[in-house]
Simulated scan of single mutants.
Amino acid sequence: MSPLWPCRAVLTFSLLLLLGTSLPMMADQLPPPEGDVLLRVTGDIDHPNVGDELHLDREMLLSLPQGVIETSTPWTEGVGRFEGPLLSALLEVAGTQSEHVRIQALNEYESEVPVSDFHDHGVILALERDGEPIAVRDLGPMFVLYPFDERPELLNETVRHRSVWHVGSIHVP
């Protein structure tokens, strides 16, 4: 038996424990939301929970794997600490293999975003800024956020148009 066996066993157990805690959110059928629906995911998804759509309330969104981005933006003052679910994790829960999605704001503005952005840049659906929920008057309740300060090359017209605020729905074609 290798002297590294105890370390590998602990690592394997830790990974299984971590995966076990995320399994309820990865189930084929998520329960319907108990709170107010903040986000609807429609279209070609494998894991709907209300008819053929995935509806998520704030608690469900907060239970997804989260990301933190500390950045300034063209629409806010100063550097903020933004937190919210990773969009890559959200699409995994929805069960989609699409290469792009259409993100629509509450005012019906929409932008087509390549899913590769979510994986390549750790894009989040920001729900909080500096520990507080983002109000509708301040780009909320949700905001597609890229790590602009960490990757200044993303601060271009194309990515700014993909950074939808007042997000209400995501459509998977």
Score class of each variant (00 low, 15 high):
S111Q: 02
S98D: 05
T21A: 08
L18Q: 06
E110T: 15
E110C: 15
P133F: 13
S22V: 03
P31L: 04
H171C: 10
A135D: 11
P141N: 08
L4D: 11
L125I: 13
G131L: 13
A94E: 01
L90T: 06
D149H: 06
T42G: 08
P141K: 08
L87A: 03
S88C: 04
R58N: 07
P85H: 02
S98Y: 05
Q97E: 03
P31R: 03
C7M: 15
T158S: 14
G80L: 14
E128P: 12
M25L: 04
V37T: 15
P141R: 04
V50C: 02
P65G: 01
E53N: 11
Y109W: 15
R162N: 10
N49R: 04
A9P: 04
R40M: 05
G131H: 14
G20H: 02
F118S: 04
A105T: 10
P65L: 00
N156A: 06
E150Y: 05
P173K: 07
S14G: 14
H166V: 06
H161D: 12
R58C: 07
D149V: 07
P173N: 12
V172A: 02
D57E: 08
P31I: 03
V113P: 01
V115N: 05
N49C: 01
A105L: 09
R8L: 11
F143N: 00
I69V: 09
T76C: 06
I103V: 15
L23G: 00
P74H: 04
P48Q: 04
L15K: 04
T12N: 12
A94G: 00
N107E: 10
G43L: 01
L154G: 05
I45E: 00
D149L: 05
R102T: 12
G43C: 05
R40D: 00
G131N: 13
P147K: 05
D130S: 04
G140M: 13
L86Y: 14
L18F: 13
F13C: 15
